[in-house]
Design a binder for these strands. Structure first.
Lengths: 209, 209
DNA sequence: CTGCCGATTTGCAACAGATGCAATTTTGCA
DNA sequence: TGCAAAATTGCATCTGTTGCAAATCGGCAG
């Protein structure tokens, strides 16, 4: 039908290379001089293209930071889509873990740079939140697919909570650093709370001071 | 100490009036022509000030949309801060309800306009998400205050889930409309799921198709 | 009432991101 | 090799945003 896996096409390959050139030039400059200190013109010059060309590859300056992350998330979504016989609960749990791993684990040369950048620059944080919303909608769609008759509120609430759990882990890592072990523990704990609810948090039942 | 309720000052009053003039002019124009179709110059002209003056009152075009909402949220935060002897769980529940009411209930002449605007325009949605993050941090701080020894992950996860629940309600309303009754039901259901966890959602335990 | 000081407003210029358009170059293929 | 489609580019333009300095306004001391 519209399958052509063995032929990216000569033209396509060049486009991909250009895209990659722009992206890595941008990330390098961001790391060196900072995000707002780097202009589109700078990036274009470093990637050896015309400034106008930048917008042929990325809709905005912010998007270039998320290029790789988006690719990874797309993979996760794909993998998540073909799920075998597991309970929806387990799928949700797995989606949380997978998405987080895709986002925070080190990939390529600028993984850490991207994370730091996104966490610090307000404009990029906003963009990240948009991505989160996208992920939430994806999870919700997945959920509706897994549980055909699920009430809308339930679907939205569950996906929202899943995202909340993810944000919890990210926020935690922002303060505590990215030690894989402690992140794993945080992740497990967060997923646990999501599953069993706030009632499972001891502190919430104690008397208020 | 620093109390002077009977004297806003003559000068201050004018500033407030100007601020209000800019805000309502902006909202009116947004409602009439749309958000990106309205320029800062238009707003300034309608409010009878110089374009440059706009930025003396609002840091950006987006912020003017949230001016009123921010005020209401500040009130909620204030009210929430002095909490009497109730269980932390109940405080969390109440904060979710209060924040949502402050955001979506009709206030002033342009309440509905603001909500519609924020939900549709990507730039404003991003800004709303930032506000959500702010609210999350506030809830987290409140929680730490209420439960001094609470583990960090728990605090972050709980506040994250609370936000997730709110987003669930907002998302629901976006599709189903703002009928107060159904919104209330949605809110209750969402809070319930947050409290008792995903395990309380029947559909999640059924076998996958 | 008047003049002064500080705060507010304003105009001007400049910069960066983003977009549309048309010209130009490159690329794939017949 | 030459043609048509696609990609790149340059150019003009618009909008949001900020810094700076001049102009203006407000309130208060004399």
């Amino acid at each position: 039908m519209d399958e052509e896996p063995a032929r990216p096409g000569l033209r396509e390959r060049k486009k991909l290379r250009t895209r990659q050139a722009i992206a890595s030039a941008a990330l390098r400059l961001f790391a060196e001089r900072g995000y707002e200190e780097t202009t589109i013109a700078d990036i274009a010059a470093a990637a050896d293209v015309a400034p106008r060309t930048f917008f042929g590859y990325f809709p905005s300056k912010e998007d270039v930071v998320f290029a790789e992350i988006d690719d990874r998330l797309a993979e996760v979504a794909e993998r998540l889509r073909r799920t075998s016989g597991e309970t929806p609960m387990e799928t949700i749990r797995r989606s949380i873990v997978d998405v987080l791993n895709a986002v925070v684990s080190e990939h390529g040369d600028y993984g850490a740079v991207q994370v730091a950048l996104i966490l610090e620059r307000p404009a990029l944080r906003a963009r990240a939140l948009q991505r989160m919303t996208g992920a939430q909608e994806a999870i919700e769609a997945l959920l509706r697919d897994l549980c055909p008759g699920i009430p809308e509120i339930d679907a939205v609430a569950v996906s929202g909570m899943a995202i909340g759990g993810m944000q919890a882990v990210v926020a935690h890592c922002r303060r505590e650093g990215y030690d894989p072990v402690s992140m794993r523990a945080a992740l497990d704990r967060a997923v646990d709370i999501v599953e069993h609810g706030l009632v499972s948090v001891d502190a919430l039942s104690s008397p208020s001071p």
